[in-house]
């Protein structure tokens, strides 16, 4: 929890009227918190993990592999857990009715994917490197390129929604959302270029490992 950003973070203006102001009430975990939704192969399609193969043609942009491992704070792999991702296209535009950024949509790119981790907690997506885009938080504020991640873990207490950034992005030090994370933990949100997992003459790979809170039971269900 010490790695999480605070709810109230004035540089990110949208927190002002939305961050709860009263201290949270401690909740001793019971059966509801120590269990969680279980997803299976029926919840994902093979094409869901390849965001470049969801339409008739190839999307524009730089094809990349994004992969990694999901473990808990005890180092145990979190196997067979659902990983959901969503992102902009290469031009920095989301395929979403509310996104008004005047950048082109790509008819061959939706920007959403999902997969289950394998027995070792590993996942792998093929996608397009997303673009940066402006937002109204402050003058000339642009979100650094990022991929949203949603993970369930095995128990309610492990639920995590986060964002993956790219190494060396000059926008990152200026980003009010990334900067809300305590300095010591900020690097956890930045993927690493992974030449070993890259596919020669086809796609560079980025590795993004995720650590969930401890699994609150001894054996996988």
């Amino acid at each position: 929890m010490e790695s999480d950003p605070p709810l109230a973070w004035p540089p990110y203006r949208s927190t002002a009227l939305r961050a709860p102001t009263l201290p949270p009430v401690p909740l001793p975990p019971g059966r509801t918190e120590l269990t969680g939704p279980v997803f299976g192969e029926g919840d994902v399609r093979p094409t869901d993990a390849d965001l470049t193969r969801q339409h008739a043609g190839d999307p524009l942009g730089e094809r990349i592999v994004v992969h990694g491992r999901v473990v808990d704070t005890d180092g145990r792999p979190v196997s067979h857990t659902l990983v959901e991702v969503w992102q902009t296209n290469a031009a920095g535009r989301y395929r979403h009715a509310v996104d008004r950024h005047p950048a082109p949509l790509d008819p061959n790119f939706t920007g959403a994917g999902r997969c289950l981790t394998d027995a070792g907690g590993r996942y792998r997506f093929v996608t397009i490197r997303p673009g940066a885009y402006p937002w109204k938080n402050s003058p000339n504020a642009w979100r650094p390129a990022h991929i949203h991640f949603s993970l369930f873990g095995r128990a309610f207490v492990q639920r995590l929604v986060t964002q993956m950034y790219f190494p060396g992005d000059p926008l990152l030090p200026h980003d009010a959302i990334a900067n809300a994370v305590p300095q010591a933990a900020r690097d956890r949100l930045v993927a690493a270029l992974d030449l070993d997992a890259s596919v020669p003459e086809w796609a560079l790979a980025y590795r993004f490992d995720l650590v969930l809170r401890a699994t609150p039971f001894a054996e996988p269900r």
Partner: peptide, 17 residues
């Protein structure tokens, strides 16, 4: 150390059906 949380942002419906 856990991976820090970040906001879902306004466009989560894309990836969280």
């Amino acid at each position: 150390m856990t991976t820090p949380s970040q906001t879902v942002g306004p466009f989560f419906a894309l990836g969280m059906p």
